[in-house]
Amino acid sequence: MEYFIELFFSGLTRGSIYALIALGYTMVYGIIGLINFAHGEIYMIGAFTSFIVATVLSILGFPLLAIFVIAALAAAVWSSAYGFTVEKLAYKPLRNAPRLSPLISAIGMSIFLQNYVLLAQTSDFMPFPQLIPEFGFMEPIAGIIGSSDLVILLTTAVVMVILTWLIKFTRIGKAMRATAQDRTMAMLVGINVNHVISVTFIIGSALAAIGGLLIASHVGQINFFIGFIAGIKAFTAAVLGGIGSIPGAVLGSFILGLTEAFATGYVSSDYEDVFAFSLLVLILIFRPSGLLGKATIEKV
């Protein structure tokens, strides 16, 4: 039983990270109908930014909490700048092009950013500083849930609450919902749709960057390629929950995280990806619109 609970929390931790990335996929898809394949790289850049900031700050002797907060903010800001720029450079000029064009542009951006980080850094894994200490009060249950799991879960929960508030109750959230439902009509009620799209990329990138920081300090190492597999997994989670749906992305992420955790724990860690992607195939066969997605007719 204890093993089961341990796996359960490990699954929730994975699910949280997937959720932070999957939200960016699903929000961008909801607004402009594009699968932003460069999103995994935005997450990777977030991890690298927090790596650089955290390393510098720890040399300067900052306290751990300050390093954590400053690194998270820096990663969010820097990744957002990348997300914003990628949209302006690679997607906006193709806004009215056939659907395949921005998709190919997105794949190109993904490869470009990977190689850019590869050249700017190295292809080796780099040790990531431990930003989350072992809390004393967690010691009695350390076998079931680690301190970094707790921090990841709590941070994700706070981020989700803020995001929900933003989308439900603010002016920009209102504009985002309207744009997602009917872009032409959003323009006709006076919403600046370009602005909404930029904000969506910025929010999605910031969430991914926070995910990057959390997982890097949890796993303890990063390299230029981490965005690829995490991106694919989070994309799977978004499709699982119903791409375009925000609650769907969160639900899909937790299901995927738990599936992987139990597959690793009870079968073998070699089969982790097999289970994850089998789940995707099953969903695509039996419920193509995802768990919470609406069946829609493909718009051409």
């Binding site: 009509m185 323009m187 009620v189 919403i191």
Partner: peptide, 22 residues
């Protein structure tokens, strides 16, 4: 389009375009 709406020109488009979920 948003600047044009701000000037006081509003359109009710063909097909009504109600936001379905709102």
């Amino acid at each position: 389009p948003d600047k044009i709406v701000a000037l006081g020109i509003c359109q009710v488009p063909e097909g009504r375009h109600i936001f379905p979920v709102l």
